Simulated assay, not measured.
Amino acid sequence: MRQLLLLALVGLGAQLVDGSLGMAYGVTSTTLLLAIGANPAAASATVHLAEIGTTLASGLAHWRFGNVDWKVVAKIGIPGAVGAFAGATFLSSLSTEVAEPVMSVLLLALGVYILVRFTTFGLPRHNLGKPLRKRFLGPLGLVAGFVDATGGGGWGPVGTPAILASGRLEPRKTIGSIDTAEFLVAVAASLGFLFGLGGVGVNFSWVLALLIGGVIAAPIAAWLVRHIPPRVLGSAVGGIIVVTNVRTLLKSDWIDASDGVRYPVYVAVYVIWAAALAYSIRQYRANRAQETVEAIAAEAAGKGDKTEATT
């Protein structure tokens, strides 16, 4: 019972992050399932089955708050579903001994990407309003869907930063559209896993626990997307994923590092993570202060123009 409650809380927390950042539900949830002993294919299948419900709830919530561009959803979601089905059937064919370190490497890479991306660059806003073309969204969806199914997460970490980096869609609509399109990816990946595994190793009570937590969090996250600083949240989530998967890899048969090697590595990773998080918070506060100064200056300039006009 305690384990199911923990999974529900993880599902709630992961969906809060995913719904407000546009990524990390699958990566966060899969990382935890691997840590408590689930085999990689079953862990990814469990998360994707739960995501059918959480992404549906999240998509509806984002739609109600006006955070969805349906053209983007169609252009990226359909190829994403194709990639996810292919990735699920591929992962199902790997043995657990091979799949676990492979998945940890993928999750670690995604965690590093999230940490570096949001700590260093924040959210770019150039080229806002220009159209996103199918020749960009189609391949992006295909790759993101494949990575999502094989890595137990990755749809958001691949898709959201790529669209944000283009600067053509405002952040809240990028996040809302990616979360909504993920419903198609979750359905396709789940079908691929059920086809490949036949349900073997999938714990449906875990699915339900993750689903309940995620559904509760979905509308809250859709509302919070306008208020949570994505830069800080991205650094925090990226660090959690890096720390957890470094630990998994160092204990895996591939490396099997001794305590004398593992603990200094853990300390180094924690120090880097803390520094990245502190930098993100500092940069966020500096940017807010700069925006306030610019707004005051603009308001003062506007009042000066009106005074000159009346005289």
Rank of each mutant, 00 (worst) to 15 (best):
G176L: 15
G154Q: 15
A181F: 06
G154K: 12
F65C: 02
N39M: 12
G260R: 04
Y266I: 01
G159S: 15
G159W: 06
A42H: 03
A257T: 08
A221H: 13
F195S: 13
S93E: 13
H62C: 01
E97H: 10
L7E: 03
A218L: 09
R285A: 04
G138A: 15
A149G: 12
Q283K: 15
Y266A: 00
A275N: 01
I52G: 03
A50M: 06
P161T: 12
P40Q: 03
W254P: 02
L211S: 13
A86I: 14
S95K: 03
V261F: 10
T54L: 10
L108V: 08
S20K: 05
R247V: 12
F90P: 01
P219C: 04
V293N: 00
V82Y: 01
F193I: 10
L106K: 00
G176E: 13
P139I: 04
V116P: 07
T89R: 12
R247C: 02
G66N: 02
G152R: 01
V147Q: 10
G152H: 00
S58D: 04
S258A: 07
V68P: 02
L56K: 02
I52E: 02
L164C: 10
A236K: 00
G111Y: 07
I78E: 02
A298W: 11
F65N: 05
T89D: 03
L9F: 09
M103D: 08
P230C: 05
A221L: 14
L12Q: 08
L56P: 08
T30K: 06
A35W: 09
P171M: 15
Y263S: 06
L16Y: 04
V17R: 00
S252A: 09
P229R: 07
T311A: 14
A35I: 03
T307M: 12
T30F: 09
A295M: 15
P79Y: 02
I240A: 15
L132M: 12
W273P: 01
L132A: 04
G22E: 10
L12F: 15
S58R: 04
V73Y: 11
S29G: 08
K306G: 00
W63P: 06
L197W: 11
S235A: 15
V269P: 11
A189I: 10
F183Y: 10
P157Y: 02
I36A: 00
A86M: 11
R282W: 12
V293L: 06
L6Y: 11
R168G: 10
L91E: 03
S93V: 07
L5Y: 08
V225R: 01
A278R: 07
L128G: 06
S20R: 04
